[in-house]
Design a protein around this nucleic acid. Structure first.
Length: 588
RNA sequence: GCCCUCGUAGCUCAGGGGAUAGAGCACCGGCCUCCGAAGCCGGUGGCACAGGUUCGAUUCCUGUCGAGGGCACCA
């Protein structure tokens, strides 16, 4: 099912082919939603640009386009306005017929990809040996949402948790334990996440303040690399406990992930470096093996390489990320590889991508994309911290979201009276988690955003609660009308007449296009913006002044049509929420 | 020094060659004998600055100013 916009694009394209021949197929019909209802629903801006090719004024070009256009079933007679805009007004009857076709469709008109792709989404990827904290939230939530959208589109998605389970942090930890807490070496399996956290803080402090310790810590990495059994035992225990903890959080967030940390690539690193050397792609420089790609420079203006082997023989994230991208292309056969990380790593990934191209692993058929997100800031515009300046643990943050959402609910005595205690608990849980996810996803990925409890939990505006409220209202309508939406026939005639019905119908039909856009552009906030528009269109439709009656209209055909519109709204919102990893509620 | 983001309403955020730049919060005002007022409707208020490209620039390009970030053995 193509959106009205897409169908219109195809019609205008066909007209362009008539006017320009084959070349017309390559011309973008420039269909855009109008900004002002006076100009209809869509406009095409293509005529102004075709003036030179076709001759005549833009308005004359527009007139010729209209003559070649076949859109009578879709919209009213197009109008020429201003310097040469073409204005289209979609016919309510067309909206109705489109809705009739999708009313029984679980996918609400969204097509499956014609050519499903093997896609890797690399996200979350915390460093082990540390508790999950606020710094991991964006990657986890955004990555999961993108994976869900791509899966919904029919792609074969591998969700990879590229955890930091190797390298200097572990050398530092192991060395610190050897020197200060040797007893841990005896019984590594007794480790708990809290211990890990405190060990890490200790080790990091020593590493930063004591250069000699730093040298010994790097040496410990080499021990690990060499298979030193006592070091490995501690390492395994650290990883196991860290991952156990991380998966507690993932379960709570309903995030699925395949753990495949940096260490996974250890066995292939020497061979890969050797290959790069032999092919003359990498050279030795200051004792390190360097793969110079692109035109990046350092502070001194000298070329900046991917350092695939350090002068001490160890490997760093240039090496593992290069090995990762190679494995994902050559072994996993991925044609689209997406990295969801802090935007500060943009340059690093640009270099890795360049390296993968230069080495010939990534051909033109492979798309390598970095989704770089901004920081989470506190209301003081500084990195989000606890009141005493500490790191905000993810578990604590989610707990607070639930507590605050519960408090919010308790302020509303009327609502409280209608809910059982079990329902209250469920509502607080769902709304709390939804609020945190939605707040993150509704911001432009690349910009920093300010973490503000009051804004994200508010029940007005573009928040999760507003969406959940709209869904809960539709459920309530079903109860009031005494019908089960699932049992309605799926061939109901849909009647779209009232202004608020037209508005709702138009918005409902935009869903497929929005999903497609999110999958292409990897920008989840397009979906939240859409959901907000849909919720508002529904609120207007159902408003006692601006909208129409639903449950108590006399005419049964009208009543059923309107109930179906409620149902389609609920399903569209529910599906959208599920694409963001957010649960729904029957009541709230 | 080089490179990358980003400057949109008092605040938080969208938008992105096209006709009068959208929301939320806050502020002012209207709407519950009527399907959920956790709602709806209206009002106030904005593209950092200067050039350029274009029929048309808030959007693209260049520069200035301002904020943040990255730049050889951390990830």
């Amino acid at each position: 099912m193509k959106s009205p916009r897409k169908q219109l694009e195809e019609r205008v394209s066909a007209a362009l082919v008539q006017l320009l021949g084959e070349a017309g197929a390559a011309v973008d019909p420039l269909i855009r939603p109008t900004q002002d209802p006076r100009f209809g629903d869509f406009q095409s801006n293509v005529a102004m640009g075709l003036r030179k090719q076709l001759g005549g004024s833009p308005r004359e070009v527009a007139a010729r386009l209209i003559a070649a256009l076949d859109v009578a079933d879709l919209c009213a007679e197009p109008e020429i306005a201003g310097p040469g805009f073409l204005n289209f007004r979609i016919l309510p009857s067309f909206l109705a017929s489109q809705l009739e076709q999708i009313q029984g469709d679980d996918r609400l008109g969204a097509p499956l990809a014609e050519q499903p792709q093997r896609v890797v989404v690399d996200f979350s990827s915390p460093n082990l040996a540390k508790e999950m904290h606020v710094g991991h939230i964006r990657s986890t939530i955004i990555g999961d949402a993108l994976a869900r959208v791509l899966e919904f589109c029919g792609h074969d998605v591998l969700r990879l948790n590229h955890v930091g389970d190797w390298g200097t942090p572990f050398g530092m930890l192991i060395q610190s334990i050897r020197e200060t807490r040797p007893e841990v070496l005896e019984r590594p399996d007794d480790l708990r996440i809290d211990d890990l956290e405190s060990f890490y803080v200790d080790a990091k402090r020593r590493f930063d303040s004591d250069p000699e310790f730093a040298v010994r810590a790097r040496k410990a990495v080499v021990d690990l690399q060499a298979g030193d059994e006592s070091a490995l035992a501690v390492w395994r225990a650290f990883c196991r406990e860290s991952l156990r903890h991380a998966h507690e959080i993932y379960e709570r967030l309903q995030v699925r992930l395949t753990d495949r940390g940096e260490s996974f690539y250890n066995p292939v690193l020497p061979g890969m470096v050797e290959e790069l050397l032999q092919r003359g792609l990498a050279i030795e420089s200051d004792g390190a093996i360097c793969f110079f790609v692109g035109n990046w420079t350092n502070r001194d203006g000298k070329p900046l390489p991917l350092m695939v082997r350090k002068s001490d023989g160890g490997y760093n994230y240039d090496t593992t990320d290069l090995a990762g991208v190679r494995h994902r292309i050559l072994q996993e056969k991925a044609v689209r590889i997406i990295y969801v990380t802090d935007i500060r790593q943009r340059q690093h990934f640009d270099m890795v991508f360049e390296g993968a191209r230069a080495a010939g692993w990534a051909g033109d058929e492979v798309s390598l994309e970095h989704v770089g997100f901004g920081m989470v800031l506190g209301e003081d515009r500084r990195p989000f911290k606890t009141r005493d300046g500490g790191t905000v643990k993810l578990k604590a943050l989610l707990d607070e979201a639930v507590t605050r959402s519960r408090e919010f609910l308790e302020q509303n005595a009327e609502r409280m009276a209608e809910l059982t205690d079990e329902e209250r608990t469920e509502i607080a849980w769902v709304v709390g988690h939804a609020a945190v996810k939605y707040a993150d996803l509704s911001h432009n990925v690349s910009s920093d955003y300010i973490f503000a409890w009051d804004t994200m939990l508010a029940l007005e505006g573009n928040t999760a609660a507003y969406m959940l409220y709209a869904v809960a209202r539709t459920r309530s309508i079903g109860r009031k009308a005494g019908i089960a939406f699932e049992e309605l026939p799926t061939d109901l005639p849909i009647l779209v007449e009232h202004e608020s019905e037209i508005g709702l119908a138009k918005t409902l039909l935009e869903f497929p296009g929005v999903v497609e856009q999110v999958a292409q552009q990897l920008r989840p906030h397009l979906l939240t913006d859409y959901m907000y528009a849909l919720s508002r269109a529904f609120s207007t439709f159902y408003d006692r002044e601006r909208g129409v009656r639903v449950v108590d209209v006399e005419d049964e055909a009208v009543r059923l049509s309107r109930l179906r519109l409620c149902d389609l709204t609920a399903r569209t919102l529910k599906t959208s929420l599920s694409l963001l990893g957010i649960d729904c509620l029957e009541k709230m």
